[in-house]
């Protein structure tokens, strides 16, 4: 499990500018880092070097295309289960072992494990949730999205 008490990584002004800028996205073109580079006053090569360092330092978890499973014919859902404390690590390993589990968080509630499924066909949601119930012995609650109001980009470095 990733510790949440991680020390904040030291970022200089250029790193901060890049983290903020690159959250918004880069274009699809020959030289997609040209704009970010000129705004930061560095060359494109250095933008890439800094992204690499930010990934290594854990400041960024990923850099690349963010695909939308639903718009590719697949489906997403949020699901939760209640794992007994003594079984928590084992159940987390079992749940994380499913490639369809895209994210998984521990939360301070009776329902203490919350995970997102991303699957290639909508039928797979029910199948995978069943497989997770069988594999963990825990009842899984399904919270499919009924509506979504906004996806924000609001983390300022």
């Amino acid at each position: 499990m990733t510790a949440l008490t991680q020390d904040t990584v030291a970022l200089d002004a250029v790193d901060r500018l890049l983290v903020n800028d690159l959250q918004e996205g880069i274009p699809v073109c020959e030289r997609p880092f040209a704009q970010a580079a000129s705004r930061a006053g560095i060359d494109e090569k250095e933008v890439v070097t800094r992204i690499e360092r930010l990934l290594e330092g854990g400041v960024l978890t990923r850099f690349g295309p963010l695909y939308n499973a639903e718009r590719l014919g697949g489906a997403l859902t949020l699901a939760a289960l209640s794992a007994r404390e003594e079984d928590f690590e084992t159940i987390a390993e079992t749940v994380n072992g499913f490639t369809e589990v895209a994210h998984n968080y521990r939360r301070d509630h009776d329902l203490n494990m919350w995970f997102v499924l991303a699957v290639e066909t909508p039928e797979r949601i029910a199948e995978v949730l069943n497989e997770i119930e069988t594999a963990t012995g825990c009842k899984v609650l399904d919270f499919p999205k009924i509506d979504e109001y906004y996806i924000g980009l609001k983390f300022h470095a």
Binding site: Q23, V59, P65, L66
Partner: peptide
């Protein structure tokens, strides 16, 4: 959705 950095 976009091609972007995902911060921790």
């Amino acid at each position: 959705r976009r091609i972007a950095a995902l911060p921790n």
